[in-house]
């Protein structure tokens, strides 16, 4: 119950914040304020944006963008590692969240089998991506804009402070948060499989796995916003 409500609120809240940020990017500088007018405009925009995904062409476009971003960011065959990470993670997060929110029994049956299999792929691809991309997000490095990606993205507008913050901070935060959550996801999976931990430890691993998954999803959402999708685009 707590997990269901907590994870739902966190994911929805971050989703709204990030999409609101994207909406603000469409506005002029003097309009970038939190106001009733901006909110109304935002919800209209959000409705239109959501509606656009009812068309298959929009999905095609998004997929093309995602593929081309991968090709731009990862050299040669290494892009397949990124695709493997993305695909496995997509299934892991969707199956995990769906069963946690809507099925009282939780994940079971064939979806669980696939979840475990994807978990292995996710662990390996995360490790590989870490090798490929970690130096970009190390402290003092320039982030996607400086080394990894050819384009320099504008900074991230913070509503609360009413100022722009360096995008690289958010990129690094999302990346390392995703890695850290992935670390705990793998740890809790492995821990529950080993015959060394008793029942309370199993409960701990279970909860650790669930909350790490939520953190991971939040980090992935942030990464999608600050790393992958161009600031000017709706996504």
């Amino acid at each position: 119950m707590l997990f269901g409500i907590g994870s739902f609120l966190l994911i929805v809240a971050l989703g709204l914040r990030l999409t609101f940020g994207r909406y603000l990017n469409h506005l002029k500088e003097d309009q970038k304020k939190l106001s009733a007018e901006a909110l109304k405009g935002y919800f209209n925009w959000l409705g239109g944006w959501g509606k656009s995904y009812l068309k298959l062409s929009r999905w095609d476009k998004s997929l093309d963008y995602f593929i081309s971003w991968g090709q731009k960011s990862y050299r040669s065959w290494t892009v397949w590692i990124f695709y493997a990470l993305a695909l496995s993670y997509l299934y892991l997060s969707l199956s995990g969240i769906f069963f946690a929110w809507f099925i009282s029994r939780g994940l079971f049956g064939f979806p669980l089998l696939l979840h475990v299999a994807c978990g292995g792929l996710f662990a390996v691809s995360l490790m590989a991506v870490l090798f490929l991309r970690a130096r970009i997000y190390l402290p003092l490095s320039g982030g996607e804009g400086s080394k990894g990606a050819p384009e320099v993205a504008p900074d991230f507008y913070c509503l609360a402070l009413n100022r722009y913050l360096p995008r690289i901070y958010f990129q690094a935060a999302s990346f390392w948060l995703f890695v850290l959550a992935g670390f705990f996801l793998i740890l809790s999976t492995l821990g529950s499989m080993l015959p060394y931990f008793n029942f309370p430890a199993q409960i701990l691993f279970f909860n650790l796995h669930r909350w790490s998954a939520v953190i991971s999803i939040l980090a992935a959402m942030l990464a999608l916003d600050v790393i992958i999708v161009k600031p000017g685009q709706a996504g």
Binding site: A123, M127, P139, F183, L187, T189, L190, M193, L194
Partner: peptide
């Protein structure tokens, strides 16, 4: 699978420690 996960965990853990 357990060996793979343990290996991944070790490498990711080391990199995180360095960071």
């Amino acid at each position: 699978l357990k060996l793979v996960l343990a290996g991944c965990l070790l490498v990711i853990g080391l990199i995180l420690a360095v960071v």
